[in-house]
Amino acid sequence: MSTPLVVAATVVAVALAVLGVLSTVLRRRIGSAHLAAAGLLELLLVVQGVVATVELAGGHRPTELATFVAYLGSVVLLPVAGVLWARTEPTRWAGTVLGVAALTVAVMLWRLLDLWGVTGG
């Protein structure tokens, strides 16, 4: 796990959540800004996933390995699931759906970092 990557991904996730809620407040559907932010978030998560996998293969052991791996797998899938689900929602609430997914990613990332242990930073 890389702390700078977690911070970067958190910033993008929070920005995506704000964009999402904003589109709901403004009664708009999600647009290319949302998709771009979600894409960037996904990219950061995949990189993070690769980094963590390499370090796991290198012998690093987080506190709860099973939980860690399950979280890592889920967090990478979340933006994809969020986008797919938001795109089938024809109302202004699509943005908030995406926001929920984004905030969940942010929370899970910090939980992952917590499980990883400070030494891995």
Binding site: E89, T91, A94, V97
Partner: peptide, 17 residues
Amino acid sequence: ARGPGRVLVALYAVFAL
């Protein structure tokens, strides 16, 4: 599961997991 309901379903799914 439409409109605001979709947000609820998303939240519930996250909590279920």
